[in-house]
């Protein structure tokens, strides 16, 4: 069963019919030719497909395209329009925060979300006292970043480099 949807991906507007079963992830990868978001598990268990969906880091593998008519999506590729790397991407490069690269676009989008959430003072499981106000610096300590980035599995295990990369991009002291 098909339905018409309109979506903006990395600044480009697309209007097309989709099978009601099609996820945003498969729509991007198999219909729109945008393979920046990766499929690692297809069930929200690895984070490789993380994108910014309507401004927040989310998992397009668990989102039906038909339910996101009008959505704005930014992938890791879209973070670098005209080839200029986003500070998070540059920090990942500088810190060698990846090896095989497959989880990397998801890590990058997730990190952008983490920095934004920290800026809003959102607590995490690593926050000792959730009742207190949280500054961005307090929200981006090693343990905070590690917890907040835990939705992105890295089998090459670049975690030790990912945390300082996120801190560098956010401009906080490691």
């Amino acid at each position: 069963m098909d339905a018409q949807v309109t979506l903006t991906v990395d600044g480009t507007r697309h209007q097309l019919p989709v099978d009601t079963r099609t996820t945003l992830l498969d729509l991007m990868r198999e219909r729109l030719g945008n393979t920046s978001p990766k499929k690692g598990c297809d069930h929200g268990q690895c984070g490789a497909c993380t994108v910014l969906l309507d401004g927040q880091r989310q998992l397009p593998c668990l989102a039906l395209a038909v339910a996101h008519d009008g959505a704005e999506i930014v992938t890791a590729d879209g973070l670098a329009p005209a080839g200029e790397l986003h500070p998070v991407q540059q920090a990942f490069l500088d810190a060698d925060a990846f090896q095989c690269g497959y989880c990397t676009p998801g890590q990058v989008c997730s990190a952008v979300g983490v920095i934004e959430e920290a800026g809003r003072g959102w607590p995490s499981h690593a926050t000792a006292d959730v009742t207190a106000e949280l500054s961005p610096e307090q929200a981006l300590t090693h343990d905070e970043v590690a917890e907040r980035m835990s939705g992105n599995l890295c089998r090459c295990a670049a975690y030790v480099n990912i945390v300082p990369a996120v801190q560098q991009a956010a401009g906080v002291q490691a």
């Binding site: 920046s36 990846f98 497959y102 990397t104 676009p105």
Partner: peptide, 26 residues
């Protein structure tokens, strides 16, 4: 620094399934 790094942080490095071919079947 890794030579393939820029493509990897952007997600433009192409892995097997992602090969751009005409009208693929699944």
């Amino acid at each position: 620094v890794r030579r393939d790094g820029v493509d990897k942080v952007r997600g433009t490095a192409t892995y097997a399934f992602e090969t751009d071919v005409e009208h693929p079947a699944y």
